[in-house]
């Protein structure tokens, strides 16, 4: 698999470390924080199709990327810096 790092260009998947989907860190101040954190850490959706996920360019620029990937075909539909694309 090849990932188009916005900083380094298209690179082999072996340079990257996978993290998981782009679930946001819940607000720790809410009343049901423990449930929300539990769900964010353990209960992940596994959609058959495009998936927004975090990859770390460990052997490159050390950027965290939001990669959109079709998990059925491994087709990479796009990649953006997490600092910019965190919406």
């Amino acid at each position: 698999m090849r990932i188009p790092c916005p900083f380094c260009g298209e690179r082999d998947v072996s340079e990257f470390a996978y993290h998981g989907d782009t679930a946001k860190r819940p607000d720790p101040a809410t009343d049901d924080g423990q449930r929300r954190f539990f769900e964010a850490v353990y209960l992940r959706d596994n959609p058959a199709g495009p998936h927004r996920e975090l990859w770390y360019h460990a052997q490159g620029c050390r950027s965290w990327l939001i990669v959109t990937r079709d998990v059925r075909t491994h087709e990479v539909l796009g990649a953006a810096l997490a600092t910019r694309g965190a919406a």
Binding site: R25, R62, A82, T83, A86
Partner: peptide
Amino acid sequence: AAKVMQHLEHARQVLWP
């Protein structure tokens, strides 16, 4: 060392950019 670096970069870039 490498794992902590990755963890801190995650916190900096993803959680609190």
